[in-house]
């Protein structure tokens, strides 16, 4: 991928230059004792294996099968995280103060950060490209139904949309609706149906994972 927005002209070797400059910076910082030769890999591994959307999926699946847990998750997301066997650090970096909002038959929630990319790292991992793109951030706050349509989400006209922007210190995410036809699924099977997009409100959960 050389360009995500075709309106600008870019140097053909733009990515190679960025790759070289990032590597040059990391090399110099290691040599000068700012970080170690393992620091960056350790950070990336943390988000690959410990803090990612698999945590959010477990929380949502539990909420779907356990009304008491769902109540706690909606009232105090950080406390609910402590009830499940999740990695140590659910209230760590970018998860210090998390809130979740519930989709219902009448209300659909979508989360955005118009100023940057605030995202609940412990429950959802790192933000996808679409969440950081200025076009999404500019448009979803005013024309959410049109933007959701571009993600393939068609909502009934009777559903009201709520948009949650993140300009201060709370990190928001979405408790999606449990799809019909999943009554026989186990909690583990339900968790597999969830995606980061569903847990930020730009996708609906489908009964079969694809």
């Amino acid at each position: 991928m050389t360009s995500l927005y075709p309106g600008f002209r870019y140097d053909a070797d733009k990515e190679a230059i960025s790759e070289a400059r990032a590597k040059a910076l990391e090399s110099l910082l290691i040599e000068k004792g700012v970080i170690t030769g393992k620091t960056v890999d350790q950070v990336l591994s943390y988000f690959d294996t410990e803090m990612g959307p698999f945590n959010g999926a477990k929380l949502v699946a539990r909420a779907w099968v356990d009304p008491e847990f769902k109540k706690l998750l909606l009232e105090d997301c950080n406390a609910a995280c402590e009830m499940l066997d999740l990695p140590n650090g659910m209230s760590g970096a970018e998860g210090e103060h998390m809130r979740i909002v519930e989709n219902t038959a009448d209300v659909h929630n979508v989360v955005v950060c118009t100023l940057c990319s605030c995202y609940p790292w412990p429950t959802l991992g790192l933000p996808p490209y679409w969440f950081k793109d200025p076009t999404f951030r500019a448009r979803v706050v005013r024309e959410p139904r049109v933007v959701l349509g571009e993600f393939g989400v068609q909502l009934s006209d009777s559903v009201n949309i709520r948009i949650w922007d993140s300009s201060a210190q709370i990190r928001w995410w979405v408790l999606p609706m449990r799809p019909e036809g999943t009554e026989s699924l186990s909690e583990e099977e339900l968790a597999k149906l969830l995606t980061p997009e569903a847990m930020m409100g730009v996708a609906l959960v489908k009964a079969k994972s694809e």
């Binding site: 927005y5 996808p128 490209y129 793109d133 076009t135 448009r139 933007v147 571009e150 993600f151």
Partner: peptide, 10 residues
Amino acid sequence: LDPVNTEPRV
């Protein structure tokens, strides 16, 4: 503006 880019990779 243009349609959104729904690229899911981080």
